[in-house]
Design a protein around this nucleic acid. Structure first.
Length: 778
DNA sequence: ATCGAGTGACTTTTT
DNA sequence: GTCACTCGAT
């Protein structure tokens, strides 16, 4: 083994080293927050390569392209750049887009197919709904798009849908009987446009691997070792791809944390990780439980939160780090005040602890919350960067330039064509476009082809001479770009496009500060393309082509764009923050209806996902976490009352520092303060604790570890002996975390029986007896 | 065909 | 408060 690698591997702890050195077979690594899973993945790949595995035979799937790049860089540092550069590493979407381009012809796609982003998909669906003359209030394009997306993620094709009475019925019940037709038309239109949407990149990969055994065989042989990060967030489609590719060698390593599964809303299936052991033979399971990131207070507070979830693999994250400060809870009258508080707190902390702006992050549940924070930071002259929301590539002026580039690469790309055909205005309006669309459908050709043949087809389409000329000019312009693209690099083409189409002039004419900013944005895009071209020249399997650039753009995340070279406070949604860490973290908008989101409170599993999201948020913090909430906040342009989030209450008080008294906002106890009634209060003042202080979560005893290693019974499983019946008000019980307490009331029966217990450590809690680890003391 | 003002729905989270 | 879409005036 390389001595450099040896030193690195020496540096791992035992739990990390075991999966790193586990060469062949299937393994799953359950990695708690901050437990160094990226290190394990990186070292494992380096180790495989040191054992003679060719980089070409390793496939590593990550959650963001940025993560892939960073890992690749670290591996290059160990095994050398020449070796590392042959690794296949990236997101599911980008890796399989690459494969699909190679194999496109088998599926009847051009290899330069376009990737439709969500907006493209939604526009197309809107157009289809309109063409079918359906009521747009019933067929809401966003809902329809969502539904189609979930079909695709579950591998329900148009035909499978039609053959599934349950689904058809469900849509009929929802007053959308023609969903299937829309779905069929949408798929057909994408196909004819030579376009794939995000879900297609996975769905078509499945199709490819299923329909063409020789292709499957080829990639099975190629990817002898497969590694998947963030496995808890894979959807069914991704699961099947991994399963198919790893089937032959079964050298599959998945890493994840069920407690951090936060993408169920887009089809992620937590069962993928929960059932991994059933999917492969002789699965080795490893756990990383030591957290190196956060203070003990934060780790334990986060544990106390996630413990409330029923569906999870048991593990105990602990840390040897210092206690650290308590989590600070702060209430503000309005969202504006909240912003001001956060800004001045950042300012003070930065001074007092001599920190950089980059040491701070503000996390929120919804993008809309960023505004108040931005305003406050700007007033304080604190530099910040917003991640997510409208990304650079989604800005109008950028999409316009990209639209032209897309059309010239793939003239069948209908959405791009519709976008640019009349911008800047050149007299080709909606009416003409409608006629062209009808004709295109009639002849089974793309709109661009019809435009190209307008002289022959024009008369029968009722398009006048003037318009015909305009169309002809447009086609000629695009064709000239295509020729240029044959002989020049992507940057040159884009620059020419920006000038020749009149896009830049249009903005110059505008003259407003906004217009100037847009010109600057286009310049930034061009600079980016120049860099791209330079970069690609150095890479082995890249061509620096325009098509490649467009693919990168389509699949880029806002995080991917971060150069990270300037010192700014980070603002982002909690979803985006997954995998990141910051010394100081402010979680803002800790309010009912916002976090947990009002749309995710109706079912237990939704609420549990919100709780996992909160867990993710908390565990981003290294040194200090803040939770802020408001009494009222602007939503939908209106001031509405707010109530503190239940998640604050779920954290044990001993981890919290209420800067603002919570009293008046605390949930009213369901039972009066004198719940003890005629019970002897002295019972609560515990006579000497039986076995010292209750064991802490942070440092599990061997006995606890043994117990925790078992997967918890699923809901409905009654394997645990129930205490039902043996409890009554007044019974004194002991809980592993909350210590001693006294039963205040019992409600429900059977499976759902709950007890309300007043604990010395935790206050009033309602526990499901089926799951509560209670011991009757007396 | 084009542009502006006005209207209405809407926000969960993203590759 | 914001985006996307509609309608009426040019």
């Amino acid at each position: 083994m390389d001595s450099k690698l040896e030193v690195y591997i020496e540096g791992l702890n035992d739990a990390q080293r075991a999966p790193t050195l586990h060469k062949d077979g299937a393994l799953i690594v359950i990695a708690g927050a901050g437990s160094g899973k990226t290190r394990v993945l990186t070292m494992r790949i380096a180790y495989l390569m040191s054992q003679g595995v060719d980089a070409f035979n390793i496939l590593s799937l990550t959650f963001t392209n940025k993560a892939a790049r960073e890992m690749k860089k670290r591996i290059a540092g160990i095994v050398g750049n020449n070796e590392a550069k042959n690794l296949w590493m990236g997101t599911f979407h980008s890796i399989f887009a690459k494969i699909l381009r190679i194999e496109a012809d088998k599926l009847g796609y051009p290899s330069n197919f376009t990737i439709y982003d969500t907006q493209d998909s939604q526009r197309l669906i809107s157009a289809i709904i309109k063409e079918m003359q359906l009521d747009k209030d019933i067929y809401k394009y966003k809902q329809v798009q969502n539904r189609i997306s979930s079909f695709k993620n579950s591998l329900i094709t148009v035909r499978a849908y039609a053959n599934n009475p349950e689904l058809v019925e469900a849509d009929a019940m929802a007053k959308r009987p023609r969903m299937g037709e829309i779905y069929a038309e949408y798929v057909d239109r994408c196909f004819k446009a030579g376009a794939m949407d995000f879900d297609d990149l996975l769905l078509r990969t499945n199709e490819l691997l299923n329909r063409f055994p020789e292709v499957l065989n080829k990639y099975q042989n190629r990817f002898k070792y497969i590694l998947v990060d963030e496995y808890q967030d894979t959807n069914h489609s991704q699961y099947l791809i991994v399963k198919a590719l790893s089937d032959k060698f079964q050298n599959i390593c998945v890493v994840g944390d069920d407690s951090q599964s936060i993408y169920a809303f887009r089809g992620a299936n937590i069962n993928n990780i929960l059932n991994f052991q059933k999917d492969y033979e002789n699965v080795a399971m490893y756990r990383l439980e030591q957290n190196y990131r956060s203070s003990k207070n934060i780790v334990e507070a986060a544990n106390s939160v996630i413990e409330k979830n029923k569906t999870r693999l048991d593990k105990t994250v602990w840390t040897a780090n210092e206690d650290g400060g308590q989590i600070i809870v702060h209430r503000s009258p309005t969202d504006g005040e909240e912003g001001r508080y956060v800004a001045s707190s950042i300012f003070e902390n930065r001074m007092n602890h001599q920190l950089n702006n980059g040491d701070f992050a503000i996390l929120y549940r919804t993008n809309a919350q960023s505004r108040a924070m931005e305003d406050a930071l700007r007033k304080r002259d604190i530099p910040y960067r917003i991640y997510g929301g409208l990304s650079f590539y989604q800005r109008k002026e950028i999409k316009d330039v990209l639209g032209y580039l897309r059309v010239l690469v793939n003239p069948k790309d209908e959405e791009a064509l519709k976008r640019v055909v009349n911008y800047p205005a050149r007299g080709i309006g909606g009416t003409t476009l409608d006629k062209l669309t009808v004709a295109a459908k009639h002849y089974g050709r793309s709109i661009f082809e019809v435009m190209d043949k307008i002289e022959q087809l024009g008369p029968s389409m009722n398009i006048n001479r003037g318009t015909q000329t305009k169309l002809k000019n447009f086609v000629t312009m695009i064709k000239s770009f295509q020729i240029l693209n044959e002989e020049s690099d992507a940057f040159t083409v884009a620059e020419t496009v920006a000038r020749k189409t009149g896009l830049l002039q249009e903005l110059k004419k505008d003259g407003t500060p906004e217009g100037i900013a847009r010109i600057e944005n286009i310049e930034e895009l061009l600079n980016g393309m120049r860099d791209f071209v330079e970069e690609q020249k150095e890479l082995a399997d890249a061509t620096g082509s325009l098509a490649e650039f467009l693919e990168d753009v389509a699949l880029a995340t806002t995080l991917d764009n971060d150069t990270g070279d300037d010192d700014r406070v980070a603002l982002m949604t909690i979803h985006l923050a997954k995998g990141l860490e910051f010394p100081f973290v402010y979680i803002v908008g800790m309010e009912e209806d916002l976090f947990p989101s009002g749309m995710s409170m109706s079912t237990r599993s939704e609420l549990e996902e919100e709780r996992r999201l909160f867990y993710v948020a908390l565990t981003r913090a290294e040194k200090q976490a803040y939770l802020t909430y408001t009494e009222s906040r602007y939503r939908w342009g209106k001031l509405v009352d707010a109530e503190p989030s239940r998640f604050i209450e779920e954290i044990d008080d001993k981890y919290l520092d209420y800067q603002t008294p919570m009293e008046s906002y605390r949930y009213k106890p369901l039972i009066d303060a004198d719940i003890f009634g005629d019970v002897d209060k002295s019972k609560l003042r515990l006579k000497k604790p039986v076995s010292g202080t209750p064991p802490k979560v942070g440092t599990p005893t061997q006995d606890q570890l043994r117990k925790l290693r078992k997967i918890r019974p699923a809901a409905g499983d009654s394997a645990t002996p129930s205490l039902a019946g043996s409890l009554e008000p007044g019974t004194v019980v002991e809980h592993i975390r909350f210590g001693k307490g006294i039963v205040a009331g019992i409600e429900g029966k059977g499976q759902d029986q709950k007890a309300e217990i007043n604990f010395e450590n935790g206050g009033l809690k309602k526990l499901l007896l089926r799951f509560a680890k209670l011991k009757i003391v007396e």
